[in-house]
Computed example of a mutant assay.
Amino acid sequence: MKKLLKRGLALTFITLGLLGCSSEEDTIVMSPLPVVKSQFTPKTIWTASIDDGVGHYFSKLAPTYAYDKVFVASRDGDVKALDPKTGKTLWEKDLGKDEPARLSGGVTALYDKIFIGSENGQVYALSVDDGSLVWQKDIEGEVLAKPLADQNFVMLNTAKGSLIALDQDTGEQEWDISNEVPNLTLRGDSSPASVSGGVFWGMSNGRLAAALIQKGQLLWQQPIGTPKGSTEIDRLVDVDASPLIIGANLYTVGINGQLVAVDLRSGTPMWKRTYSSATDLATDGSKLFVVTDKDHLIGVDVRSGTKLWENNDLQYRQLSDPTVIGDYLVVGDNEGYLHWIDRDTGAFVAQQLIGDDDDGIAVAPIALDDGFVVITREGEIKKMQIPDGS
């Protein structure tokens, strides 16, 4: 089924409320659903729900699996811990009693707490045991990216262009690294990543940055994209992808920029390839997987950046971040389908509809010890398993 899409830019909303224009609606058409002969059909183990999910708002409100619980949240403020074996609700917390909490970005679990931010500029820490509120902190700027917890800090990349570190015990602010935000940016931010005492994140000015976690000291910045063109839209260079760390190297990609491999310590580029994307990367250790701004799937060699394969059959289907589940690469789309891809060839292996038609998938499934969990935009949650031998 062909379907006209309202699109801003790179399949997301941009900060000035541009929700697309008539010319884009006339020319950008979602590819029809590919015809796939599925080699397997994942089995549903249990089904649950989380309020109304994120609906059709921009929100990458991804669940997480930790402490033998699956933590999920809705945009309006409902947070739950689910038993991964049965789907039973272990505890539930409503953070939106007085007004919608506008939770966004995703759930992070560490230090016996879960951390989650909101578009209202609030950060919450809840106990993983019973969901009780440990602390709540107001900060400047929307929190659209998943928090990072490390070195006894909770770090948040805000829409105002600041990386802020809070004490994980109290929520008190420890340091703030600010950068200038262009007049026009994509609706989204890079979730920070960390290793060996360093934190790494993408900026809306087209740069990748590194800092020391304990001191909040900026170490280096590396340009991923350079503004070009005559209009502000043409000159967008946001780096919204979360940096991906493999060994001593870091990988990221930007809009109107490049897919880049850099040395962690120095920030020196190892190789660069011209791809434009606002989604996170995935890897199986030897390959990187990219979803471009046109929703083309690309497989790239980690060592050289050489393109190994490309799949264009999901163009403009508003794909989720890619993820690796078992032996396969998986993406969800805006009509609620999961697409299973052969990691070596880029060919389709299986396809399935999750929930009702048009109940889209905004975030990638998460892997469990004995299956995976997928959540739809409307808040339907399913634990599924790939059949043995598939």
Rank of each mutant, 00 (worst) to 15 (best):
P84Q: 11
K97F: 06
A350F: 09
S118C: 13
E232R: 04
G202S: 13
D138R: 15
W201A: 06
M384Y: 11
K382Q: 15
G371W: 05
D388S: 11
L82C: 07
A362E: 05
T89V: 15
N120V: 11
Y65L: 12
L163E: 05
A66L: 12
A367R: 15
V123P: 01
K69N: 13
N311I: 03
Q214C: 00
G229Q: 11
N183E: 14
Q352A: 11
L184K: 00
H339G: 03
D327S: 13
L319P: 00
N249G: 03
G371A: 11
D76P: 07
D238S: 08
W309C: 03
A241S: 08
W271K: 06
T231S: 15
I361K: 01
S204W: 01
F348I: 00
V349F: 11
S132R: 15
A145F: 00
I246F: 08
D238R: 04
L319Q: 05
G360R: 05
G202H: 10
Y251S: 09
K137N: 02
G229N: 13
N205M: 04
L33M: 14
D169E: 14
F348E: 01
K3I: 11
P42C: 15
A248G: 11
L166E: 04
T27H: 08
L319K: 03
E172W: 12
L144K: 07
D321R: 08
Q385S: 09
V239M: 07
D295F: 10
N334P: 00
D150G: 09
D293A: 00
M30G: 09
A347Q: 14
V291E: 01
Y67C: 14
I325D: 07
G131N: 04
L110H: 15
V331M: 07
E232A: 09
T89G: 01
L110T: 13
G247M: 02
